[in-house]
Design a protein around this nucleic acid. Structure first.
Length: 824
RNA sequence: GCCCGGGUGGCGGAAUUGGUAGACGCUGCGGACUUAAAAUCCGUUUUCCGAAAGGAAGUGAGGGUUCAAGUCCCUCCCCGGGCACCA
């Protein structure tokens, strides 16, 4: 064994050993204790960034730890290969997106290998390959048959100069990123998946996801946003039957607060609402206002944070209970995509309605009592609480529930209202007006309408040899792609040129790893062996969208009989970002650190160790060059300590009799460390404290003098333990050290060490003495000391006595094994 | 604006169930070894008072609950993530 630690000499050799031995290739062995560990697959953007390194390392540590528990571990890897960056690169470099993407994949795969990540590469999945996306197209046609997809108009960001649809990301301060033109919201027909059909199940099953972080479940719950309320019809004064055709000629609104119905003083509709368009006809001022409302991006954050503006339409609704006219306004904060695109405004009892009413001098009416008898100034602030109703005619003096029920009963009796469960969750718009994505398998026929492509004609292959211009999809200019025969009647028809949202690919890839080469079906019986994923690991930024869509897809797969599982991921770990100087590492910030350079300078183990030691996985990680140096020094020190130990002779004996006090202390530390690290890695996923624990053990090894054969055996045990405990994190150096310590087996095939309870026994423990909660003394006491003994020992301490002085002792609290608190 | 996190020494962080605040590491400072440097090792490193023993203060701010609060409750400030076409 080399006396110096040179990672470059060992890492590639050991990686080759794993390849030769097919160490990480797993099959569907019957009866094995299967464990599926999965990382969110990366977008092949060019080369790995530190965020990738972090999440892959976490996952690899979990996989290797589970393997040492005797589990049959699957850890696959693949590529979320469709997306906008490939199109942008294509425009910039004049390289087709496919070529750019495949080159990136090859490079990044090599980087993953250099990090020592244990993947079963036979299962690699690449979403831009027809053999992958054909099954997605197939699924879509099945959903079409089941009525779970439909087409409707919806809002996009339109760049009027480039004549193209922009992603929210491509809208900077309300302007197109290339043209600089003011972006408009525009409605175009798009395909939707009925995720709202599964809203209740997606919500209810969150309660069973014990292995998910609570914040993620809370966010999903709020995102789904189930609310029970009333859909109330307001008649409209005048003839607007055409504009209100979808709602039977009335202005329909949803409210969770029907108890405030008597407080309605105006109505508000979205800029896209047909009533607004009708009122704007021949009214230049209103036309200009409606247009300006649409001149903001479609992003909800932009709509919600801009100044609240509105204008009256000059149309009145009729209050369903009082018969009074209520003016209808158009307002820029009403979302057409939520509810019916219209709302009843109750400024007395809603924050936003109140602010808007104050601004435009609209009346504010109090119909809910204050919580106390104090006088109320409803003009100053709304009352949001669900208190007793007042000034509401026959519905006055009622609690929220009573008022809700009585008003609901009254209005539903003659069909002027419906009890309704509403969701904030909207159906998933999957159409994208882009080239580099999965073609939506639909053919439009003048006679038959939208017809799904028959299974025999799948996949609809995306042509890869294209030139991307940046204005619209190149597919539109390819007659050989667009022109197709109608599958239904055979007449000439047009193929859909929109592609799927890339979230569609990432919503089922986890299942495809189980049967990546299945040619006859989307999934086969191997999926049943592996699914659901035992541990899923990825960025917290995916807490809502990706994870909700994946849960939705798992339910679709279940309902198509392709998988028995209802939920895709049993346990979820959301990892924080990698920062430098407190900011996200990114090209635009100019603060990236290239993992490749770090691997070459220090080796993969150092990079892995640093990533795992510097912060717990869920937290943001601050990059530090000095910290990397520290990680490297620790490995060098480990190498040297083991080297010095084996020079003085190794031993395989398990005889731990005749130990000195120091030997016993070290042996106890060894087993305390096994217990701590097992808990940290296996349950808490706090790899940083696990590493700190092993560091402490090594500190004690070096501070313990060994002058006997028994002491030598204790040190051998301590070092073997340290090496085993670190092996999931730094697999190369520990592979080498394990052999050096006298073992023939590869450490990757070893079992996790177990605690010897006998070694943990202490005869003396430290007890802390407090006076009035402040630390005043420490006592060394027998571990089995009685409460009374602790009290009397505490009371005789000099420093304790001086703080008690002549004050009477009121109470003594004893926490066994920890402290005594004397209250005076 | 709405939803979810976070805020602890010079820095990253630890404190797992309300029970010793600062484990472990980095940096800095002092020292040993060396012709020298690198590497390594030893000591020290929350602030203030003190020669020391020890004491006082201290976990974003303010209030509260408790024998005891970084941890629980209320109000507020700041930072990060998400907001449906970034992935």
């Amino acid at each position: 064994m080399n006396k110096q630690y040179h990672p470059a000499d060992i890492e590639q050799r050991i990686q080759q050993f794993w390849r030769d031995e097919k160490t990480f290739e797993v099959d569907e062995t019957p009866g094995a204790d299967a464990y599926y560990c999965l990382t969110m697959f990366p977008y092949p953007s060019g080369k790995l960034h530190m965020g990738h390194v972090r999440v892959f390392t976490i996952s690899d540590v979990v996989a290797r730890y589970q393997r040492m528990q005797g589990k049959h571990v699957l850890q696959p890897m693949g590529w979320d290969a469709f997306g906008m960056p490939a199109e942008n690169a294509a425009i910039k470099n004049k390289v087709p997106p496919a070529e750019w993407t495949y080159q990136n994949i090859d490079y990044m795969r090599g980087q993953m290998d250099a990090l020592g990540l244990g993947y079963d590469w036979r299962r690699e999945v690449t979403t831009c390959r027809p053999e992958y996306y054909r099954w997605e197209q197939w699924l879509f046609t099945k959903l079409f048959e089941k009525g779970l997809v439909y087409r409707k108009n919806s809002v996009v960001n339109w760049d009027p100069v480039d004549n193209t649809v922009l992603a929210n990301e491509q809208v900077i301060d309300g302007r197109g990123w290339r043209s600089g033109a003011l972006v408009e919201r525009r409605e175009i027909p798009q395909w939707f998946m009925k995720i709202t059909d599964y809203a209740d199940e997606l919500l209810a099953e969150l309660d069973n996801l014990d292995g998910w972080p609570t914040p993620v479940k809370t966010m999903q719950r709020n995102w789904i946003g189930r609310s029970e309320g009333l859909e109330i019809d307001f008649a409209v004064d005048g003839d607007y039957a055409a504009e209100l055709a979808e709602t039977d000629g009335v202005l329909r609104v949803f409210t969770t607060r029907p108890d405030t119905l008597f407080g309605v003083t105006y109505m508000a509709v979205a800029a896209e609402h047909p009533l607004a368009a009708r009122a704007a006809e021949g009214d230049p001022e209103l036309t200009a206002f409606v247009k300006s409302c649409k001149q903001t991006s479609a992003a909800e954050a932009d709509i919600e944070t801009r100044e609240k503006l509105g204008m009256p339409l000059g149309i009145n609704a009729i209050h369903p209970l009082t018969g009074q006219p209520v003016p209808i306004w158009v307002a820029n904060f009403v979302l057409m995509s939520y509810g019916t695109g219209a709302l009843m405004a109750v400024p007395g009892h809603d924050e936003r309605d109140h602010e808007f009413a104050k601004k435009y001098g609209l009346p504010i009416r109090q119909v809910i009592a204050g919580a106390t008898d104090d006088p109320i100034d409803i003009d100053a602030a709304p009352i949001i609480e669900k208190n007793t109703t007042i000034d509401s005619g026959e519905f006055s003096g009622l609690s929220f529930d009573e008022a809700f029920e009585k008003i609901a009963d009254t209005l539903t009796l003659d069909d002027r209202a419906t009890r309704q469960v509403n969701y904030r969750l909207r159906d998933w718009g999957v159409s994208r007006q882009r080239y580099w994505g999965t073609p939506i398998p639909i053919i439009y026929c003048d006679d038959c309408g939208a017809v799904p492509v028959p299974e025999a004609d799948l996949p609809v292959v995306l042509p890869e040899d294209v030139t991307v211009s940046g204005t619209g999809s190149p597919l539109k200019d390819m007659p050989e792609f667009v022109n197709a025969a109608c599958p239904s009647c055979g007449k000439p028809a047009r193929r859909e040129t929109d592609t799927f949202d890339t979230f569609v690919e990432s919503s089922w890839y986890f299942a495809r790893y189980a049967s990546p080469d299945a040619n006859e079906a989307m999934l086969d019986e191997r999926a049943a062996y592996w699914l659901p994923v035992d541990q899923y690991i990825g960025g917290v930024e995916h807490a809502i969208l990706h994870l909700l869509y994946a849960r939705f897809f798992q339910k679709l797969l279940r309902d198509l009989g392709l998988s028995a599982a209802s939920e895709p991921f049993t346990n979820l770990l959301t990892q924080g970002m990698v920062l430098k100087d407190g900011r996200k590492m990114s090209k635009s910030e100019g603060n990236t650190v290239d993992p490749q350079g770090m691997i070459e300078e220090f080796g993969a183990d150092t990079v892995r160790l640093f990533m795992m030691f510097t912060a717990p996985p869920e937290q943001a990680l601050e990059w530090s060059d000095d910290g990397v140096g520290g990680a490297f020094r620790f490995l060098r020190r480990l190498w040297r300590i083991v080297n010095e130990h084996i020079e003085s002779g190794i031993t395989a004996s398990a005889d731990f009799s005749d130990l000195t006090r120091a030997d016993k202390d070290l042996r106890r530390k060894t087993h305390e460390t096994i217990a701590k690290v097992s808990d940290d890695v296996g349950r808490r996923y706090t790899f940083n404290t696990a590493i700190a624990g092993v560091m402490e053990l090594l500190n004690q090894v070096t501070s313990t003098n060994v002058d006997s054969a028994a002491g030598q055996r204790v040190r051998q045990e301590a070092l073997e333990t340290a090496v085993l405990l670190l092996s999931p994190i730094v697999p190369h150096i520990t592979h080498e050290l394990w052999h050096a310590l006298g073992h023939d087996n590869a450490i990757v095939d070893e079992r996790w060490p177990s605690v010897d309870a006998e070694a943990l026994v202490r005869d003396e423990i430290e007890i802390v003495v407090q006076v009035n909660g402040k630390l005043r003394a420490r006592l060394q006491m027998p571990a089995d000391a009685e409460k009374a003994a602790l009290e009397s020992a505490a009371l005789t301490e000099e420093n304790v006595k001086s703080f008690i002085a002549d004050k009477p002792v009121r109470k003594i609290i004893v926490v066994p094994g920890r402290l005594v608190n004397i209250v005076v």
